[in-house]
C-alpha cells in the first residue's frame, strides 16, 4: 500500500517556528536571527547594538554555540538578559531549542530578542527559528565572493551587515560587487556597512530594527 504524504520534511520545525513567532508577536517582541561565519563579528555587532539601542529597545539575547559560554558572558557583562544554548556539535539552532531557551527569558520585559546562531553559512539557512528578521553578517576579511558561494543564506535574509569596514583599505574586497550580488539574491534587503567597535554605521542598523518591531 502507498501513503501519499506530500508534506514538508521540516514540517515539525516549521510548525514550532510559527508557534515561536506567535509567542514573540504576543509579547510585541522583534525576533532577530543573526547568522554569519565564525569570526564574522556577530557578538561584537551585538555589543555595539546594545549601545545603539539604549533607551529605544530593551534587548534579550539567546547565544547559540557548539560549546562554552564566552559569548553569553560578554552579554552578561553589559547587563543584557541572556540564555546560552550549547548545541553539543550540531551546526545550527532549530525551533525546538529556541522554544526551550525562550522559557528562560522574561519576554515581556524585552522589545527585541536577538538569537545569535552558530557560526555557519550553510546549515543555518534551512531552519526557521520563528524570527521576524534574519540578519546575515559578512566581514570584509572573508571576501566578497561569499554571496556567490553560499547563496541560500543570503537569499533568505532580510538585511546584510558588512562588518570590519575599517579594514577595507587593507583587504581585497569589492564592495560594489557584494552590494550588487545581494541585490540580485534579495532585492528588498538593505545593506549596512559597519565598523562595530567604533559604532560606525550601527545607528542606521539600529533605526532599521526599531522600525521592524511588531
Amino acid at each position: 500500500m502507498k501513503i501519499i504524504a506530500a508534506k514538508k520534511i521540516l514540517k515539525a520545525n516549521d510548525q514550532l517556528a510559527e508557534a515561536n513567532r506567535a509567542t514573540f508577536n504576543a509579547a510585541r517582541l522583534l525576533a532577530v536571527n543573526m547568522v554569519g561565519s565564525p569570526g564574522s563579528g556577530k557578538t561584537t555587532l551585538l555589543e555595539a547594538l546594545v549601545n545603539a539601542l539604549q533607551g529605544r529597545m530593551r534587548l534579550a539575547v539567546i547565544e547559540g554555540d557548539i560549546a562554552g559560554s564566552i559569548d553569553a558572558e560578554r552579554m552578561e557583562a553589559l547587563g543584557v538578559p541572556v540564555v546560552q544554548i550549547n548545541t553539543e556539535g550540531a551546526c545550527h539552532l532549530d525551533a525546538t531549542m529556541i522554544a526551550a531557551a525562550a522559557q528562560g527569558l522574561e519576554l515581556a520585559a524585552a522589545d527585541c530578542l536577538v538569537i545569535e546562531n552558530v557560526g555557519n553559512l550553510v546549515c543555518t539557512a534551512g531552519f526557521d527559528l520563528g524570527e521576524h528578521v534574519r540578519l546575515v553578517l559578512l566581514s570584509v576579511t572573508e571576501g566578497d565572493d561569499k554571496l556567490v558561494k553560499y547563496p541560500a543564506i543570503f537569499r533568505g535574509s532580510h538585511a546584510l551587515v558588512i562588518t570590519k569596514c575599517d579594514l577595507l583599505p587593507h583587504v581585497n574586497f569589492n564592495m560594489e560587487r557584494a552590494v550588487a550580488d545581494m541585490r540580485r539574491l534579495a532585492p528588498d534587503a538593505p545593506v549596512f556597512q559597519v565598523c562595530a567597535p567604533r559604532q560606525e554605521g550601527v545607528a542606521e542598523l539600529a533605526d532599521w530594527l526599531v522600525q521592524r518591531r511588531p
Partner: peptide, 12 residues
Amino acid sequence: REMLLESIELEE
C-alpha cells in the same frame, strides 16, 4: 526550494 516527503510504500 521544496523539501518534501511525497509518498511511503509499505509491504503489508
